[in-house]
Amino acid sequence: MSARAKSNEQCFSIDEWFVVALARTIRDREVVFHGFGSPCAQVAMHVARHSHARDMMLVEGATYSINPEPPFIPPTGNDLALEQGASYRMRFEEFFDAAIRGDVDRMFLSGGQIDRYGNTNVTAVGPLERPKVKLGGGGGGCNLAATIGHLSLWTTRHRSGRTLVEHCDFITDMGHRTPAGSRAELGFAGGGPEWLVTELGVFDFDDGGQARLRQLFPDVSVDTVRAATGFEVQVASDLRSVPLPSSAEIAALRAVDPLGVRRSEFAPEELRRTFSHGQSVGCAC
C-alpha cells in the first residue's frame, strides 16, 4: 500500500464514520433489512457483513435479494446491481411474511420527524388535512415495526432542529409508545427501537422506552445536541465518544459504495467534517 493510500484510510469523513456507527448496531447472525431510499443503512449492512457480522443474513431493501455482493450501490433501491451475487432472491411476500411472523431480527428506519420514544413520521409534517410537507410515505413500516426484533433508527438531519421533535405530527411507524399505548399493551412482539444514530451522536433507549444519549462525535458537545433536540435530552452517565471506525471498515465501505450514494443523505456543510485516527478531529485531507 502506498503512503498516500494509507494516509487516506486514516482520514475519513462524517458520512463514513456515521455509516460505520450504524453498521455496529448489527449483531452477527442477525437477519437484517433496510427500507428503500436509505443509502446509509444500505451501505452499513454491507459494511457489517464484511467486518464484524460475517454470518448475518442481509436482505436488500427493494430487491429482497439475500447476501448479494453488489459491484456498487446504485442511487435507486430497486436495481439489478443489488441482486448481483445473491444466494437467493425472495419474493416480496416471502420477505414480508417472514418479517410479520417474527423471523427478521433488525430493520433500519428513519423519519422526517422522530420523537423520544422512537416513533417516526415519514408521512406528513403539519396537519394531516393540509400538510406543510407531504413526505414520501412509510412503505411497509407500519406493520414491520410491530414485529421485527429490533429497530435501528437513524437520521442525518439532527442538527436542523426539525427532526428530533417533542411530538411527531403523524406517527407512521411505532416506536416504544404512542398515545394508543405501549408495545406490550398493543400485543407487538417486536422489541422496537434499540438505537438512534444521528450525525451528532448515538442514543439508546432506557427501560421506559425513552431515548438516552450514549455517544457523541468528538466535534459535537452535549449543548449542541440539546439545542438541536425538541425533547429533553437524557444523557447516560457513561457518555463517551463514538468509537473510531477501523481501517477495515472504512475500506469495506469505500469498496461497496464507490458512487458515494451515502453522501446524498447529508447536508453539504456536514460533509466537510473530517477526522483521522491519529487526532480524531480536524483532519486536513
Binding site: 408521512t123 407500519c142 406493520n143 414491520l144 411505532m174 394508543a180 398493543l186 400485543g187 407487538f188
Partner: peptide, 13 residues
C-alpha cells in the same frame, strides 16, 4: 387481519 397498524396514524387515513 393484520398484526401491525395499531399505534400508527395510518389508521386515521
Amino acid at each position: 387481519p393484520v398484526r401491525g397498524v395499531k399505534g400508527s396514524d395510518i389508521r386515521r387515513l
